[in-house]
Design a protein around this nucleic acid. Structure first.
Lengths: 206, 206
DNA sequence: GAAGTTACCGACAGTGGTGTCGGTTGAACC
DNA sequence: GGTTCAACCGACACCACTGTCGGTAACTTC
Protein backbone atom coordinates (compact mmCIF):
# COMPACT_ATOMS: atom_id res chain seq x y z
CA UNK A 1 0.00 0.00 0.00
CA UNK A 2 3.05 2.24 0.25
CA UNK A 3 4.79 3.77 -2.71
CA UNK A 4 7.09 0.79 -2.82
CA UNK A 5 4.61 -1.86 -3.92
CA UNK A 6 2.19 0.27 -5.92
CA UNK A 7 2.73 0.27 -9.64
CA UNK A 8 4.16 3.53 -10.79
CA UNK A 9 1.27 5.16 -12.59
CA UNK A 10 3.02 8.22 -13.89
CA UNK A 11 6.30 8.01 -15.70
CA UNK A 12 8.75 10.85 -15.87
CA UNK A 13 8.57 12.86 -19.03
CA UNK A 14 11.74 11.37 -20.59
CA UNK A 15 10.60 7.84 -19.85
CA UNK A 16 7.19 8.43 -21.37
CA UNK A 17 8.74 10.15 -24.32
CA UNK A 18 10.93 7.15 -24.89
CA UNK A 19 7.96 4.81 -24.86
CA UNK A 20 6.15 6.99 -27.34
CA UNK A 21 9.15 6.93 -29.64
CA UNK A 22 9.45 3.18 -29.41
CA UNK A 23 5.77 2.74 -30.20
CA UNK A 24 6.08 5.21 -33.06
CA UNK A 25 8.85 3.19 -34.69
CA UNK A 26 6.61 0.13 -34.74
CA UNK A 27 3.47 1.84 -35.95
CA UNK A 28 5.14 4.02 -38.56
CA UNK A 29 6.99 0.99 -39.87
CA UNK A 30 3.83 -1.09 -39.95
CA UNK A 31 1.45 1.39 -41.56
CA UNK A 32 3.55 4.15 -43.07
CA UNK A 33 3.44 7.78 -42.07
CA UNK A 34 0.05 8.74 -43.42
CA UNK A 35 -1.90 5.73 -42.25
CA UNK A 36 -0.28 5.66 -38.83
CA UNK A 37 -2.71 7.05 -36.28
CA UNK A 38 -1.46 8.97 -33.29
CA UNK A 39 -4.14 7.26 -31.24
CA UNK A 40 -2.59 3.90 -32.04
CA UNK A 41 0.90 5.11 -31.19
CA UNK A 42 -0.31 6.66 -27.94
CA UNK A 43 -2.22 3.64 -26.74
CA UNK A 44 0.70 1.39 -27.70
CA UNK A 45 2.76 3.66 -25.46
CA UNK A 46 0.21 3.12 -22.70
CA UNK A 47 -1.21 6.60 -22.64
CA UNK A 48 -4.03 8.72 -23.96
CA UNK A 49 -3.66 10.38 -27.30
CA UNK A 50 -3.40 13.94 -26.08
CA UNK A 51 -0.44 13.17 -23.86
CA UNK A 52 1.50 12.90 -27.04
CA UNK A 53 1.26 16.66 -27.48
CA UNK A 54 2.98 17.24 -24.16
CA UNK A 55 6.06 15.62 -25.66
CA UNK A 56 6.02 16.46 -29.36
CA UNK A 57 4.68 19.37 -31.33
CA UNK A 58 3.15 17.31 -34.12
CA UNK A 59 3.01 13.93 -35.80
CA UNK A 60 5.41 15.26 -38.36
CA UNK A 61 7.99 16.23 -35.76
CA UNK A 62 7.75 12.83 -34.12
CA UNK A 63 8.27 11.14 -37.44
CA UNK A 64 11.34 13.20 -38.27
CA UNK A 65 12.79 12.59 -34.84
CA UNK A 66 12.25 8.86 -35.04
CA UNK A 67 13.69 8.71 -38.53
CA UNK A 68 16.86 10.42 -37.38
CA UNK A 69 17.26 8.24 -34.33
CA UNK A 70 16.74 5.01 -36.18
CA UNK A 71 18.99 5.97 -39.05
CA UNK A 72 21.77 6.78 -36.64
CA UNK A 73 21.23 3.44 -34.90
CA UNK A 74 21.44 1.64 -38.20
CA UNK A 75 24.63 3.36 -39.29
CA UNK A 76 26.18 2.67 -35.93
CA UNK A 77 25.13 -0.97 -35.81
CA UNK A 78 26.16 -1.81 -39.34
CA UNK A 79 29.34 0.23 -39.09
CA UNK A 80 30.37 -1.64 -35.96
CA UNK A 81 29.80 -4.94 -37.75
CA UNK A 82 32.21 -4.03 -40.52
CA UNK A 83 35.16 -2.63 -38.61
CA UNK A 84 38.07 -4.97 -38.55
CA UNK A 85 37.04 -6.92 -41.61
CA UNK A 86 39.75 -7.32 -44.22
CA UNK A 87 39.24 -6.40 -47.82
CA UNK A 88 37.57 -7.80 -50.92
CA UNK A 89 35.27 -10.68 -50.29
CA UNK A 90 35.88 -10.64 -46.57
CA UNK A 91 34.79 -7.07 -46.27
CA UNK A 92 31.74 -7.57 -48.39
CA UNK A 93 30.68 -10.58 -46.38
CA UNK A 94 31.06 -8.63 -43.15
CA UNK A 95 28.92 -5.83 -44.51
CA UNK A 96 26.18 -8.16 -45.69
CA UNK A 97 26.26 -9.97 -42.39
CA UNK A 98 26.07 -6.76 -40.39
CA UNK A 99 23.09 -5.49 -42.36
CA UNK A 100 21.22 -8.77 -42.16
CA UNK A 101 21.88 -8.93 -38.47
CA UNK A 102 20.60 -5.41 -37.91
CA UNK A 103 17.49 -6.06 -39.98
CA UNK A 104 16.88 -9.24 -38.03
CA UNK A 105 17.14 -7.59 -34.64
CA UNK A 106 15.28 -4.42 -35.49
CA UNK A 107 12.87 -5.27 -38.28
CA UNK A 108 10.75 -2.18 -37.71
CA UNK A 109 13.74 0.10 -38.09
CA UNK A 110 14.70 -1.56 -41.35
CA UNK A 111 11.22 -1.18 -42.70
CA UNK A 112 10.92 2.41 -41.56
CA UNK A 113 14.16 3.45 -43.22
CA UNK A 114 14.28 1.36 -46.33
CA UNK A 115 10.84 0.32 -47.51
CA UNK A 116 9.61 2.99 -49.87
CA UNK A 117 6.28 4.02 -48.38
CA UNK A 118 5.53 7.50 -49.71
CA UNK A 119 4.19 10.10 -47.30
CA UNK A 120 2.38 12.61 -49.46
CA UNK A 121 4.66 15.22 -47.92
CA UNK A 122 7.52 15.90 -50.27
CA UNK A 123 9.86 17.14 -47.56
CA UNK A 124 9.51 14.00 -45.51
CA UNK A 125 10.12 11.80 -48.53
CA UNK A 126 13.19 13.84 -49.26
CA UNK A 127 14.63 13.17 -45.82
CA UNK A 128 14.31 9.44 -46.36
CA UNK A 129 15.74 9.83 -49.81
CA UNK A 130 18.76 11.68 -48.45
CA UNK A 131 19.41 8.88 -45.97
CA UNK A 132 19.20 6.42 -48.80
CA UNK A 133 21.63 8.37 -50.94
CA UNK A 134 24.08 8.67 -48.07
CA UNK A 135 24.00 4.92 -47.50
CA UNK A 136 24.51 4.22 -51.18
CA UNK A 137 27.43 6.60 -51.22
CA UNK A 138 28.99 4.91 -48.21
CA UNK A 139 28.74 1.48 -49.79
CA UNK A 140 30.10 2.81 -53.08
CA UNK A 141 33.12 4.27 -51.30
CA UNK A 142 33.72 1.09 -49.41
CA UNK A 143 33.57 -1.05 -52.53
CA UNK A 144 35.59 1.39 -54.62
CA UNK A 145 38.78 -0.70 -54.69
CA UNK A 146 36.92 -3.88 -55.59
CA UNK A 147 35.03 -2.15 -58.36
CA UNK A 148 38.24 -0.67 -59.67
CA UNK A 149 39.90 -4.06 -59.71
CA UNK A 150 36.97 -5.36 -61.78
CA UNK A 151 37.40 -2.67 -64.37
CA UNK A 152 34.49 -0.58 -63.22
CA UNK A 153 35.46 3.03 -62.62
CA UNK A 154 34.20 4.23 -59.23
CA UNK A 155 31.60 6.93 -59.79
CA UNK A 156 30.72 5.64 -63.23
CA UNK A 157 27.11 4.77 -64.05
CA UNK A 158 28.01 1.11 -64.08
CA UNK A 159 29.39 1.38 -60.56
CA UNK A 160 26.19 3.00 -59.40
CA UNK A 161 24.12 0.21 -60.88
CA UNK A 162 26.26 -2.43 -59.22
CA UNK A 163 26.09 -0.77 -55.82
CA UNK A 164 22.34 -0.28 -56.10
CA UNK A 165 21.91 -3.92 -57.01
CA UNK A 166 24.00 -5.11 -54.09
CA UNK A 167 22.08 -2.95 -51.64
CA UNK A 168 18.56 -3.67 -52.84
CA UNK A 169 19.32 -7.34 -53.32
CA UNK A 170 20.67 -7.70 -49.82
CA UNK A 171 17.76 -5.75 -48.43
CA UNK A 172 15.39 -7.98 -50.34
CA UNK A 173 16.92 -10.93 -48.56
CA UNK A 174 16.52 -9.17 -45.24
CA UNK A 175 12.83 -8.61 -46.01
CA UNK A 176 12.38 -12.19 -47.09
CA UNK A 177 14.19 -13.50 -44.03
CA UNK A 178 11.91 -11.42 -41.86
CA UNK A 179 8.87 -13.17 -43.32
CA UNK A 180 10.53 -16.59 -43.56
CA UNK A 181 12.74 -17.20 -40.58
CA UNK A 182 14.20 -20.63 -40.14
CA UNK A 183 17.64 -20.17 -41.62
CA UNK A 184 20.44 -18.91 -39.43
CA UNK A 185 22.29 -15.67 -39.93
CA UNK A 186 25.45 -17.39 -41.16
CA UNK A 187 23.60 -19.46 -43.71
CA UNK A 188 21.75 -16.50 -45.17
CA UNK A 189 24.88 -14.39 -45.16
CA UNK A 190 26.79 -17.15 -46.86
CA UNK A 191 24.43 -17.79 -49.72
CA UNK A 192 23.95 -14.07 -50.33
CA UNK A 193 27.67 -13.44 -50.42
CA UNK A 194 28.29 -16.40 -52.67
CA UNK A 195 25.74 -15.31 -55.24
CA UNK A 196 26.95 -11.74 -55.35
CA UNK A 197 30.64 -12.61 -55.31
CA UNK A 198 30.76 -15.80 -57.36
CA UNK A 199 27.81 -15.32 -59.68
CA UNK A 200 25.03 -17.79 -60.30
CA UNK A 201 26.95 -20.52 -62.16
CA UNK A 202 29.73 -20.69 -59.55
CA UNK A 203 27.30 -20.63 -56.65
CA UNK A 204 28.59 -23.94 -55.36
CA UNK A 205 32.22 -22.83 -55.10
CA UNK A 206 33.91 -21.79 -51.89
CA UNK B 1 -21.25 25.09 -83.18
CA UNK B 2 -22.59 21.78 -84.40
CA UNK B 3 -21.89 18.45 -82.82
CA UNK B 4 -18.95 18.01 -85.19
CA UNK B 5 -16.70 20.67 -83.73
CA UNK B 6 -17.85 20.58 -80.13
CA UNK B 7 -15.72 18.56 -77.78
CA UNK B 8 -17.36 15.36 -76.73
CA UNK B 9 -18.42 16.02 -73.17
CA UNK B 10 -19.84 12.65 -72.24
CA UNK B 11 -17.94 9.44 -72.76
CA UNK B 12 -19.61 6.08 -73.00
CA UNK B 13 -19.60 4.11 -69.79
CA UNK B 14 -16.81 1.72 -70.85
CA UNK B 15 -14.60 4.58 -72.03
CA UNK B 16 -15.05 6.48 -68.78
CA UNK B 17 -14.48 3.34 -66.80
CA UNK B 18 -11.23 2.80 -68.63
CA UNK B 19 -10.07 6.32 -67.84
CA UNK B 20 -10.90 5.83 -64.20
CA UNK B 21 -8.91 2.62 -64.13
CA UNK B 22 -5.93 4.27 -65.78
CA UNK B 23 -6.03 7.13 -63.31
CA UNK B 24 -6.39 4.67 -60.44
CA UNK B 25 -3.22 2.84 -61.44
CA UNK B 26 -1.27 6.08 -61.25
CA UNK B 27 -2.74 7.35 -58.00
CA UNK B 28 -2.67 4.01 -56.18
CA UNK B 29 0.93 3.53 -57.27
CA UNK B 30 1.89 7.03 -56.20
CA UNK B 31 0.22 7.16 -52.80
CA UNK B 32 -0.66 3.63 -51.84
CA UNK B 33 -4.16 2.30 -51.27
CA UNK B 34 -4.99 4.07 -48.02
CA UNK B 35 -3.69 7.50 -48.89
CA UNK B 36 -5.11 7.45 -52.41
CA UNK B 37 -8.20 9.65 -52.50
CA UNK B 38 -11.07 8.81 -54.80
CA UNK B 39 -11.44 12.51 -55.47
CA UNK B 40 -7.94 12.60 -56.90
CA UNK B 41 -8.55 9.54 -59.04
CA UNK B 42 -11.84 10.94 -60.28
CA UNK B 43 -10.51 14.34 -61.21
CA UNK B 44 -7.49 12.74 -62.87
CA UNK B 45 -10.06 10.81 -64.91
CA UNK B 46 -11.71 14.10 -65.81
CA UNK B 47 -14.87 13.61 -63.86
CA UNK B 48 -16.55 14.38 -60.55
CA UNK B 49 -15.96 12.06 -57.66
CA UNK B 50 -19.44 10.61 -57.47
CA UNK B 51 -19.32 9.40 -61.06
CA UNK B 52 -16.92 6.79 -59.80
CA UNK B 53 -19.78 5.06 -58.01
CA UNK B 54 -21.63 4.61 -61.29
CA UNK B 55 -18.79 2.37 -62.40
CA UNK B 56 -17.46 0.66 -59.28
CA UNK B 57 -19.04 -0.37 -56.02
CA UNK B 58 -16.23 0.84 -53.78
CA UNK B 59 -12.64 1.95 -53.62
CA UNK B 60 -11.72 -1.54 -52.55
CA UNK B 61 -13.31 -3.13 -55.61
CA UNK B 62 -11.54 -0.70 -57.90
CA UNK B 63 -8.23 -1.52 -56.26
CA UNK B 64 -8.69 -5.26 -56.60
CA UNK B 65 -9.75 -4.89 -60.21
CA UNK B 66 -6.77 -2.73 -61.07
CA UNK B 67 -4.39 -5.07 -59.27
CA UNK B 68 -5.64 -8.01 -61.30
CA UNK B 69 -5.46 -6.19 -64.58
CA UNK B 70 -1.97 -4.87 -64.03
CA UNK B 71 -0.63 -8.16 -62.75
CA UNK B 72 -1.93 -9.91 -65.83
CA UNK B 73 -0.34 -7.25 -68.02
CA UNK B 74 2.97 -7.71 -66.27
CA UNK B 75 2.95 -11.49 -66.59
CA UNK B 76 2.03 -11.20 -70.24
CA UNK B 77 4.64 -8.55 -71.03
CA UNK B 78 7.48 -10.21 -69.23
CA UNK B 79 6.50 -13.65 -70.45
CA UNK B 80 6.52 -12.46 -74.05
CA UNK B 81 10.02 -11.03 -73.57
CA UNK B 82 11.40 -14.37 -72.46
CA UNK B 83 9.94 -16.72 -75.04
CA UNK B 84 12.50 -17.91 -77.51
CA UNK B 85 15.48 -17.22 -75.28
CA UNK B 86 17.91 -20.09 -74.99
CA UNK B 87 19.06 -21.43 -71.65
CA UNK B 88 21.45 -20.51 -68.89
CA UNK B 89 22.85 -17.06 -69.11
CA UNK B 90 20.91 -16.24 -72.26
CA UNK B 91 17.63 -17.00 -70.60
CA UNK B 92 18.47 -15.08 -67.50
CA UNK B 93 19.49 -12.06 -69.49
CA UNK B 94 16.26 -12.16 -71.46
CA UNK B 95 14.24 -12.29 -68.25
CA UNK B 96 16.07 -9.39 -66.67
CA UNK B 97 15.73 -7.41 -69.86
CA UNK B 98 12.02 -8.12 -70.12
CA UNK B 99 11.36 -7.05 -66.56
CA UNK B 100 13.41 -3.88 -66.82
CA UNK B 101 11.67 -3.03 -70.05
CA UNK B 102 8.25 -3.52 -68.51
CA UNK B 103 9.16 -1.46 -65.47
CA UNK B 104 10.47 1.27 -67.72
CA UNK B 105 7.36 1.45 -69.86
CA UNK B 106 4.85 1.09 -67.05
CA UNK B 107 6.46 2.44 -63.92
CA UNK B 108 3.17 2.84 -62.09
CA UNK B 109 2.28 -0.79 -62.65
CA UNK B 110 5.63 -1.91 -61.30
CA UNK B 111 5.24 0.20 -58.23
CA UNK B 112 1.66 -0.90 -57.67
CA UNK B 113 2.51 -4.58 -57.84
CA UNK B 114 5.94 -4.77 -56.28
CA UNK B 115 6.58 -1.94 -53.85
CA UNK B 116 5.46 -3.09 -50.44
CA UNK B 117 3.02 -0.38 -49.37
CA UNK B 118 0.77 -1.96 -46.74
CA UNK B 119 -2.96 -1.28 -46.91
CA UNK B 120 -4.22 -1.80 -43.40
CA UNK B 121 -6.62 -4.34 -44.91
CA UNK B 122 -5.18 -7.81 -44.47
CA UNK B 123 -7.10 -9.30 -47.36
CA UNK B 124 -5.78 -6.77 -49.82
CA UNK B 125 -2.22 -7.27 -48.66
CA UNK B 126 -2.72 -10.97 -49.07
CA UNK B 127 -3.72 -10.57 -52.70
CA UNK B 128 -0.51 -8.71 -53.44
CA UNK B 129 1.40 -11.27 -51.47
CA UNK B 130 -0.10 -14.09 -53.51
CA UNK B 131 0.95 -12.37 -56.74
CA UNK B 132 4.43 -12.03 -55.35
CA UNK B 133 4.62 -15.67 -54.38
CA UNK B 134 3.41 -16.75 -57.79
CA UNK B 135 6.08 -14.66 -59.49
CA UNK B 136 8.80 -16.02 -57.24
CA UNK B 137 7.62 -19.54 -57.97
CA UNK B 138 7.70 -18.89 -61.70
CA UNK B 139 11.25 -17.60 -61.59
CA UNK B 140 12.33 -20.49 -59.39
CA UNK B 141 10.92 -22.96 -61.87
CA UNK B 142 12.57 -21.23 -64.76
CA UNK B 143 15.96 -21.19 -63.09
CA UNK B 144 15.66 -24.73 -61.78
CA UNK B 145 18.16 -26.27 -64.20
CA UNK B 146 20.75 -23.56 -63.61
CA UNK B 147 20.42 -23.87 -59.87
CA UNK B 148 20.75 -27.61 -60.14
CA UNK B 149 23.88 -27.29 -62.22
CA UNK B 150 25.36 -25.06 -59.50
CA UNK B 151 24.73 -27.65 -56.83
CA UNK B 152 21.71 -25.94 -55.35
CA UNK B 153 18.75 -28.27 -55.08
CA UNK B 154 15.63 -26.63 -56.50
CA UNK B 155 13.14 -26.11 -53.71
CA UNK B 156 15.84 -25.97 -51.08
CA UNK B 157 16.11 -22.97 -48.78
CA UNK B 158 19.27 -21.90 -50.53
CA UNK B 159 17.45 -21.89 -53.86
CA UNK B 160 14.73 -19.70 -52.38
CA UNK B 161 17.27 -17.22 -51.11
CA UNK B 162 18.98 -17.05 -54.48
CA UNK B 163 15.75 -16.51 -56.36
CA UNK B 164 14.60 -13.87 -53.92
CA UNK B 165 17.89 -12.06 -54.28
CA UNK B 166 17.73 -12.13 -58.05
CA UNK B 167 14.20 -10.77 -58.07
CA UNK B 168 14.58 -8.05 -55.50
CA UNK B 169 17.95 -7.01 -56.85
CA UNK B 170 16.63 -6.68 -60.37
CA UNK B 171 13.61 -4.82 -59.12
CA UNK B 172 15.86 -2.51 -57.15
CA UNK B 173 17.63 -1.68 -60.39
CA UNK B 174 14.28 -1.04 -62.05
CA UNK B 175 13.36 1.35 -59.25
CA UNK B 176 16.70 3.09 -59.44
CA UNK B 177 16.51 3.36 -63.21
CA UNK B 178 13.09 4.93 -62.87
CA UNK B 179 14.55 7.70 -60.72
CA UNK B 180 17.83 7.97 -62.64
CA UNK B 181 17.20 7.55 -66.34
CA UNK B 182 20.06 8.20 -68.67
CA UNK B 183 21.35 4.71 -69.29
CA UNK B 184 19.81 2.65 -72.06
CA UNK B 185 17.94 -0.60 -71.55
CA UNK B 186 20.74 -2.70 -72.98
CA UNK B 187 23.35 -1.12 -70.76
CA UNK B 188 21.36 -1.60 -67.59
CA UNK B 189 20.44 -5.13 -68.57
CA UNK B 190 24.04 -5.90 -69.33
CA UNK B 191 25.56 -4.72 -66.08
CA UNK B 192 22.81 -6.36 -64.04
CA UNK B 193 23.26 -9.67 -65.81
CA UNK B 194 27.01 -9.53 -65.50
CA UNK B 195 26.95 -8.94 -61.77
CA UNK B 196 24.46 -11.68 -61.09
CA UNK B 197 26.04 -14.17 -63.46
CA UNK B 198 29.74 -13.43 -63.09
CA UNK B 199 29.92 -12.14 -59.55
CA UNK B 200 31.55 -8.94 -58.43
CA UNK B 201 35.24 -9.79 -59.05
CA UNK B 202 34.59 -10.99 -62.60
CA UNK B 203 32.36 -8.06 -63.44
CA UNK B 204 34.59 -7.01 -66.31
CA UNK B 205 34.44 -10.36 -68.12
CA UNK B 206 32.21 -11.06 -71.10
C1' DG C 1 -37.76 17.45 -83.07
C1' DA C 2 -39.68 14.89 -79.29
C1' DA C 3 -38.88 11.16 -75.97
C1' DG C 4 -36.08 8.20 -73.41
C1' DT C 5 -31.84 6.72 -71.57
C1' DT C 6 -28.04 7.43 -68.72
C1' DA C 7 -23.60 9.85 -67.86
C1' DC C 8 -22.90 13.16 -64.79
C1' DC C 9 -23.02 16.13 -60.55
C1' DG C 10 -24.07 18.88 -55.89
C1' DA C 11 -25.42 18.28 -51.38
C1' DC C 12 -25.59 15.42 -47.45
C1' DA C 13 -24.57 12.09 -43.65
C1' DG C 14 -21.22 9.37 -41.31
C1' DT C 15 -16.54 8.26 -39.87
C1' DG C 16 -11.88 8.81 -38.40
C1' DG C 17 -8.12 11.53 -38.21
C1' DT C 18 -5.16 15.92 -36.07
C1' DG C 19 -4.37 19.45 -32.91
C1' DT C 20 -6.19 22.64 -28.75
C1' DC C 21 -7.70 23.78 -24.14
C1' DG C 22 -9.00 23.63 -19.40
C1' DG C 23 -9.16 20.80 -15.71
C1' DT C 24 -7.62 16.81 -12.64
C1' DT C 25 -4.66 14.29 -9.81
C1' DG C 26 -0.34 11.58 -8.80
C1' DA C 27 3.98 12.48 -6.98
C1' DA C 28 7.84 15.29 -5.14
C1' DC C 29 9.42 18.70 -1.91
C1' DC C 30 9.40 21.46 2.22
C1' DG D 1 0.34 17.39 5.62
C1' DG D 2 0.04 21.35 2.75
C1' DT D 3 1.80 23.23 -1.53
C1' DT D 4 3.55 22.99 -6.05
C1' DC D 5 4.64 20.98 -10.33
C1' DA D 6 3.59 18.60 -14.34
C1' DA D 7 1.93 14.10 -16.34
C1' DC D 8 -2.28 12.98 -17.78
C1' DC D 9 -7.04 13.15 -19.82
C1' DG D 10 -12.04 14.35 -21.80
C1' DA D 11 -14.33 17.31 -24.68
C1' DC D 12 -14.16 20.19 -28.55
C1' DA D 13 -13.38 22.31 -33.21
C1' DC D 14 -11.89 21.36 -37.62
C1' DC D 15 -10.82 18.84 -41.78
C1' DA D 16 -10.54 15.06 -45.34
C1' DC D 17 -12.42 11.17 -47.07
C1' DT D 18 -16.04 7.51 -48.30
C1' DG D 19 -20.42 6.33 -49.84
C1' DT D 20 -25.66 7.77 -50.88
C1' DC D 21 -29.44 10.08 -53.23
C1' DG D 22 -32.19 12.86 -56.13
C1' DG D 23 -31.94 15.77 -59.87
C1' DT D 24 -30.06 17.63 -64.46
C1' DA D 25 -28.84 17.63 -69.07
C1' DA D 26 -26.13 15.50 -72.95
C1' DC D 27 -26.44 12.16 -76.10
C1' DT D 28 -29.31 8.47 -78.96
C1' DT D 29 -33.22 6.87 -81.23
C1' DC D 30 -37.40 7.09 -83.59
Amino acid sequence: MTTADTVRRRLTAPARRERIEAAAVEVFAERGYDAAALGEIASAAGVSRTVFYDHFRSKRELYLHVLGTQNAAMLSDVGAGITGAGAGRERMRATIRAYLSFAHQRPAARRLLVDPIPTGDGDLDQVISSFRIARTQAVATMLGPDLDRSGVAPGSPAATVVVELLITGTDGIARWWQDNPGLGLEEVTDITTRLLWNGLPRLGEH
